[in-house]
Design a protein around this nucleic acid. Structure first.
Lengths: 229, 229
DNA sequence: CGACGGATTGATCGTGCTCAAATCATGTGG
DNA sequence: CCACATGATTTGAGCACGATCAATCCGTCG
């Protein structure tokens, strides 16, 4: 799937929005090191790489959204992270990917050969530092998420999710969620029904409003923060 | 607490067992870079560093055991990792520690100034690579643990814990757990009672044997692996 | 030996899961 | 442009797993 997907990537042209923190600086930093980034588009539901596959590329979302997950043999799934425009994913220190990555909707990514990154890191201390910072950022997220998964109740998890998504993709006070209820549940360690019930309850309390199941407006962020333990 | 703890650390003398993978090579690698490691001992239950404190040192367990955790305001605790002899902990890419670390039992650590590590990494690409690998190793563990916390049932979690501890600290087929049932529960996202019940059930099935609550012998690792999803 | 903290075991409860049905949204073909 | 098909979401009813509350039991250390 990775092989198929990466036939003849075209050279990058569209710049990613040049705001935000370490993740966004990443491809910029590598640009200074003379690395060439390509672009590629994956269809909705398409696999970008699989768990345990050799790690050949590092990716940055240009548009769309990606889910990264692990599966148990009986199909139980834990989504470790969602990647949204500007986010970098697929960076490994070891030889293989440890989670599967899939496009949630049609998604365009910029990509960089892992090998060239490694080479750049060997001579450019800023690139090396950037690789470490990226991984440390993912670790920080995972540590916060372990607390959520191990110790928060359903409403706290959903409130936390809404605030995270609001921060990451709100436009004009509105967020357009790219993922379905099942994805949200598999991210939060809940079932899709429990997620739905929590959202309905928040709506009935006036804390949020819907315009379609995936178009959400937060009407009271402070109350949401109180709900998030 | 960190300040107090680190008054007058003595120069390192005892070498840590020179086996195991990336974590163990870490202090060795830094040794090549001419860095000086000190030793220090913490008493049982003593805090080594606190969440959000400035990260000044990197630690390696010489003897003893450490728990690293996050707390919610109402006291709910999620232990992210246990650190055992040979393990490195407290390494941050950012300025502060994101979890609290405490000695579970009397614990001796070797420590290295974070600043000197950063300086070494700026000139020695092996050190830089080592820092990245360490963080990536922690991330891998966190990713596996998110799957456990989000999607595994109580018995699967306990089986997984036993296999992890067996791998990391078994001596002559026996393991001496340094942590209490509450710590295990807070690591696995369970209560101490649930952990105790699972262990009792495994004993009644002959999968393990006790000689004191914390001295455990695994009698059937394969069956344990089957129980761990 | 006694006291104390840790561990086990029991009984009951409650949150979130499961199973099921109805409703809604979306896109496709006539 | 509408009708319908399909998948996503919501909502309901009942259940089960792990939590909670409580009472021993045990092991360790003074």
């Amino acid at each position: 799937m990775l092989n198929q997907s990466l036939r003849a990537p075209t050279v990058a042209k569209a710049p990613v929005d040049p705001s935000r923190s370490p993740a966004d600086q990443f491809f910029a930093t590598t640009g200074h090191a003379g690395l060439i980034a390509s672009e590629f588009t994956y269809k909705k539901e398409e696999e970008i790489y699989g768990e345990d596959e050799p790690s050949e590329y590092v990716y940055q979302v240009v548009s769309g959204a990606v889910r990264s997950y692990k599966l148990l043999s009986d199909g139980r799934r834990q989504i470790g992270a969602f990647y949204l425009p500007g986010d970098v994913f697929g960076l490994e220190s070891g030889p293989t990917h440890r989670l599967t990555a899939e496009a949630i909707v049609d998604t365009t990514v910029r990509l960089l050969k892992r090998r060239s990154l490694e080479q750049a890191a060997a001579t450019d201390v800023h690139v090396a530092r950037s690789l470490w910072s990226m991984t440390a950022g993912e670790l920080r997220h995972a540590e916060d998420h372990m607390l959520l998964l191990g110790r928060k109740n359903a409403m706290e998890r959903v409130a936390n999710f809404l605030l995270e998504m609001d921060r990451r993709l709100a436009v004009a006070g509105m967020m357009a969620l790219p993922m379905c209820r099942r994805d949200i549940g598999d991210y939060l360690g809940l079932t899709l029904e429990t997620v739905s019930r929590a959202l309905s309850q928040l709506q009935s309390q006036g804390i949020l409003g819907f315009s379609g199941a995936r178009q959400i407006e937060l009407r009271n962020r402070q109350q949401l923060r109180n709900l998030d333990a």
